[in-house]
Amino acid sequence: MAPGGRAVREFFLSPTHAWRAFIGDPSEGLSAIWEGFLTNIWMFIVCEVLVLIFGLAIAVVRMSSSPILTPLRFLSTVYTDFFRGIPVILVLFAVGYGVPGMDLGWISQQSPTVYACISLTITYSAYVAEVYRAGINSVATNQLVAARAIGLRQGATMRYVVLPQAVRNVIPPLLNDFISLQKDTALVSTLGIVDATQAAHIYGSLNFNFAGYTVASLLFLLLTIPMTRLTDRLINRDRVKRLAFIS
């Protein structure tokens, strides 16, 4: 075997190091990667729920035709353009370091975890709003006409006819965004939060061994691969349905 291969095995794949990194060692100040990973998971879950709600609200405002909502509609357009165009990590820095430094009373006294969740939610709501918007647009106009023809008002049409169909259409792209969100929870380590990435990093720098990175990667894969497969299955199912419809 090439000498490089040995090094890779030793640095990245050593089972002893991997296990120690995984379970941590409080006596040496080593956080367990699995514990860090729990942070990733719950942050992901909290953000996902918030993102689903905010994203929908933004999309619905952006697509409303009511004149009272015009200022809000403008704001939501600016919002989505802005946050879809900025790297998540900059938002994390701005919120995670900027807000505490601004001396805004209780707003500036939250934990890094709160700022991390806010940053991820802000960014991903912009992505997801666009996904919802595409979904709403994908509902055929004849559905709108049919709803108006039985006298449903605009709000009821949205709620009972458009959104249920839109949500169905957007599940695969939403899952895609959630896979990204799951991975991007790793970025919260930049705010000093000890997630799986940070725990692996600490282990690596103290032991000069990177098996922890491998462990953290595997944990992320464990989370994202089922989601990826599910997304593919849903996309495929829709495609089969459409094909059946065409023939």
């Binding site: 004849n142 006409v145 049919a146």
Partner: peptide
């Protein structure tokens, strides 16, 4: 009104 293309709500 009823349309040529039915336009039932598929969901």
């Amino acid at each position: 009104i009823v349309f040529q293309a039915f336009n039932l709500f598929p969901h």
